[in-house]
């Protein structure tokens, strides 16, 4: 399969080198229990990703050893603990592919994801962000409330792990903002929309999202402030843009 190119919003296209041009980025802190499983789900993809970058954000457990054992070919970047946004930024800065593909260490890429997304890129070459459907699984201790059950099979493009993002677009908006951690992906998604990114979808399942505990209702009560701050920042940007 040739490199997916395209002329979507943002600049850049495939690498033109005959590679697939997809850089997988797996940010993690203290994820020794599950990181190998996530890596295996990436390496099982056909065609393979061009590279796998694991960003260890200051883990104090055996995450780094687990990564090395699971995949000696992975590029392991270790940094002081700076948070999810900074870890993703570090991974993206090191990436060489034209497309970025993220995965959190507690989730999985389902078999066939890579092939489905590549087919999607050829069908929608204008896409800056291409995503597939979610499969929601409850881990032991996890519960699926009505909203999560509704999410099973849905397209939620703000979840970067559900698809591919053109690296030039990531660079154009400046990547993620560490100050927006806890709602960094919503903040990025809103900025991508404001930048005019073309969001496209495919029918295939591209992410197995694993729910754990009942953190959501607790988090909504206690830390919805981050999400609301990201929304307010979007309101202010749009006002400035309209002025």
């Amino acid at each position: 399969m040739s490199t997916p190119g395209g002329t979507g919003t943002g600049t850049g296209s495939g690498t033109g080198s005959g590679t697939l041009g997809i850089s997988a980025i797996l940010p993690v802190r203290n994820g020794a229990a599950l990181v190998a499983e996530a890596i295996r789900s990436i390496r099982a993809q056909q065609p393979p990703v061009e590279e796998l970058i694991v960003v260890d954000d200051g883990s104090t457990d055996a995450t780094a050893d687990c990564v090395r054992r699971a995949d000696p070919a992975a590029r392991l970047l270790r940094q002081a603990p700076l948070g999810p946004a900074a870890a993703r930024n570090a991974g993206a800065a090191a990436a060489r592919g034209a497309w970025l593909a993220f995965l959190d260490h507690d989730d999985l890429w389902p078999p066939g994801r890579q092939a489905a997304l590549l087919a999607g890129l050829h069908a929608r070459p204008e896409a800056g962000l291409l995503c597939g459907r979610l499969q929601i699984l409850a881990l032991p201790g996890g519960t699926l409330d009505a909203r999560l059950r509704q999410a099973d099979g849905a397209h939620l493009p703000f979840l970067l792990a559900s698809g591919l993002l053109r690296r030039s677009l990531w660079q154009a908006v400046g990547g993620m903002r560490p100050a927006r951690d806890r709602a960094e992906d919503i903040d990025l998604y809103l900025r991508l929309l404001e930048a005019g990114a073309t969001v496209a979808t495919i029918e295939a399942t591209t992410l197995v999202y694993r729910q754990h505990g009942d953190n959501r209702s607790r988090a909504a009560a206690l830390t919805g402030a981050a999400l609301l701050a990201a929304m307010q920042a979007a309101v202010l940007r749009r006002r400035r843009g309209a002025a």
Binding site: A33, E37, G83, P84, D106, A151, G213, N215
Partner: peptide, 29 residues
Amino acid sequence: LQGLLLVDPIHEVSEAGWPLAPQTLGGAG
């Protein structure tokens, strides 16, 4: 974001780890 906030849009982040601390998995994985 209409229809998009179905999955946890608010992430737990702590020194113990993220996206979740492994010890919260109850032996999964």
